[in-house]
Simulated scan of single mutants.
Amino acid sequence: MTDILFLAEILVAVLLVIGAVFTLVGSYGLVKLDQPMKRLHAPTKASTLGVGSLLLASIVHAFAFGEGSLHELLVMAFLFVTAPISGNFIAKVHLHLQRGGKELPPPPSEERWATYSEH
């Protein structure tokens, strides 16, 4: 029995590290990328996988060490359904504005208004 619990602890630790790395990459991409279409992919792809991995670690821990709950599974399903759809809607608005000949609103005059640069 302790071998199974040890394997569950290792699986939870691996899922937490994977989730943290994906979330960090998504957050860094959101801050560092400069164009809206580039910036769109960081939170919708990498952060979704990161949060999904963290929730999966929570599910494994709950079922291995205590009473299992399906709340995390419902949150994960909602996340995987809504994040790509909202990203798709944002991309469609951007494309419709470009194809319609309308300009996107200009960024504020400050050069570093939404991205991190080291100058």
Rank of each mutant, 00 (worst) to 15 (best):
F65M: 13
I4V: 14
L30H: 00
H96M: 15
L7S: 14
I59D: 06
L15E: 01
I90V: 15
G68T: 05
A114Q: 06
I85N: 00
S69E: 09
P106N: 04
L104Q: 09
I18P: 05
E67S: 09
S58T: 04
V14D: 02
H61E: 05
Y116Q: 14
A57M: 02
T48H: 07
L79I: 10
K92L: 15
A64T: 03
R99I: 13
P108D: 08
L40A: 12
L79Q: 02
L15C: 07
M1L: 04
A77G: 11
V21R: 06
L7T: 11
S69A: 11
S27C: 14
T2P: 08
R99Y: 10
P36L: 12
V14P: 00
K92E: 10
V21N: 08
L79D: 09
N88F: 11
A42F: 06
L97Q: 13
I18S: 13
K92S: 07
A91H: 00
G68S: 10
G101K: 01
L5P: 08
A42C: 08
A13I: 00
G101N: 03
K38S: 15
V75S: 07
V81A: 12
P108E: 03
H94K: 13
P43M: 07
L30T: 02
Q35M: 12
E118D: 12
F78C: 08
L104A: 13
L56V: 07
L24C: 14
S47H: 05
V21T: 10
K45C: 12
L16A: 05
P107V: 06
H61N: 05
V51H: 07
L49F: 14
A91F: 03
L5Y: 09
V17P: 02
K32G: 05
I85Q: 00
A57H: 00
V17F: 09
A77R: 01
G50T: 14
L24R: 04
E72P: 03
P36G: 07
A20E: 11
K32A: 14
L7G: 12
V51M: 15
S69I: 08
G66S: 11
F78W: 04
G66F: 00
F80W: 12
G29I: 10
L15W: 00
F80L: 15
L30P: 02
R39G: 08
L24P: 09
A13S: 06
K102V: 14
T44A: 14
K32Y: 04
S47M: 15
V12T: 04
Q98L: 14
A57P: 01
K32W: 00
S117N: 09
T82M: 12
L55E: 06
G87T: 08
S58F: 01
S27D: 06
L73C: 05
Q98R: 11
E72S: 11
V25W: 01
S53G: 09
G19R: 13
V60R: 01
F65D: 08
H94S: 15
N88W: 06
T115F: 11
A64L: 06
F63K: 07
V60L: 02
E110H: 02
S58A: 13
W113L: 13
G19K: 08
G52W: 05
M37V: 11
K92W: 05
N88C: 10
V93A: 15
